[in-house]
Design a protein around this nucleic acid. Structure first.
Lengths: 195, 195
DNA sequence: CTTGGATCTGAACGCGCGTTCAGATACCCT
DNA sequence: AGGGTATCTGAACGCGCGTTCAGATCCAAG
């Protein structure tokens, strides 16, 4: 046997990435074998190597794709005038974006240490750039005396940690809607940084 | 060869746990082999089984020990009168405790999914009890009208996520002392929940 | 000084790993 | 209709895994 009916690069490729994302998020990169991914896709292990040079590249590709998507979505946000409005937009965006892709968020945090140093640097750079976007808002707000933040870097990290935390407990169809969650978190952030 | 000079259960036992903690934190449970742990201790792999029935039990023991220590330390806190003072004590305690054992904190978050269901339930229960301690403070403060928190459960999780985030960036000997970090975070939490 | 138990070694077990590749098959293009 | 290519299978590679165990060695108690 060999090529099966209806097989297609444009179909199998995304399915490989999807299966890898799902399994990495559930069990961890190191705990998932190429054969498991293949089984999820409905293919033999060897076929995966039409879509990735190796397992490491598959992980890196998922993380890189996630970070690029994050930046693209952030850049696409409508611009706001005041630091307060920009901060609100960031908070609401961060929550909505992350709640939409919990698995990608999860592995982007958990599997950083499984990246080879060169790949790690790339992802780390993208993450820092994202943090810088928030810090710029905080700095502007402080300069305009609308925010009281003693240390913009730490506040940046604290806010992001708090916001990202939603992915650990939020479940679609649960007690709260995304909009309600956004409102609650925005209230906390606004109060925490206000002058 | 067999038993080597100076060997001792009371020495090797803790060293096994220490090596496992260090390696699990660095590379992840699934990525660390018993032979690596043994090499770190300076012993053959078989000898580890004098100290743990298997690899899973070793992980569980580390996580359980960490959570028990956390509760003991929390219970040992001097009692405070007002909700505000209790909240401040909790915030400062959480930061100090977690910054003191970054590796244990790390694996307690990262390796939960590698616990067998039965073990997972135990750790999850201890974690929830810890969260409940904070939520009780928030509830009391809200009832006393000193806090404005629309949802105590979510605020609890948000605060803990924010505080635990310090372990991802704090490095001893860095720009800030633990006391300074505590102060910055306490300021943010206080403002975020105040009425 | 002897002896028994605690501690460790070294070898072994079956197994699944990531990866490669020759060959088989299905699809697309002319 | 038929050739070429993209795609997949199935088998194989060497390796390291978690765990077990008989035997060697050290230590402490009598």
């Amino acid at each position: 046997m060999a090529r099966t009916q209806g097989s297609h690069s444009q179909i199998t490729g995304p399915r490989v990435r999807g299966a890898a994302l799902k399994l990495f998020a559930k069990h961890g990169f190191a705990a998932v074998s190429m054969r498991q991914i293949a089984r999820e896709v409905g293919v033999q292990a060897g076929a995966l190597y039409n879509y990735t040079p190796d397992k490491q590249a598959l992980l890196f590709s998922l993380l890189k794709g996630h970070m690029v998507e994050l930046h693209d979505a952030l850049d696409a946000l409508p611009e706001s005038d005041t630091p307060l409005a920009r901060l609100e937009a960031f908070v609401r965006f961060h929550i909505a974006f992350h709640l939409d892709r919990p698995e990608a968020v999860f592995i982007s945090y958990m599997e950083l240490r499984n990246l080879e140093p060169e790949n790690f640097e790339v992802i780390e750079g993208l993450r820092r750039r994202y943090e810088d976007a928030l810090e710029a808002v905080l700095t502007d707000g402080r300069d305009a005396c609308v925010f009281d933040v003693p240390d913009t870097k730490i506040t940046t990290l604290a806010v992001i940690a708090m916001l990202t935390g939603v992915t650990t407990w939020y479940r679609a169809g649960g007690r709260l809607s995304v909009a309600e969650v956004q409102q609650i978190y925005w209230d906390m952030v606004r109060k925490a940084v206000r002058a």
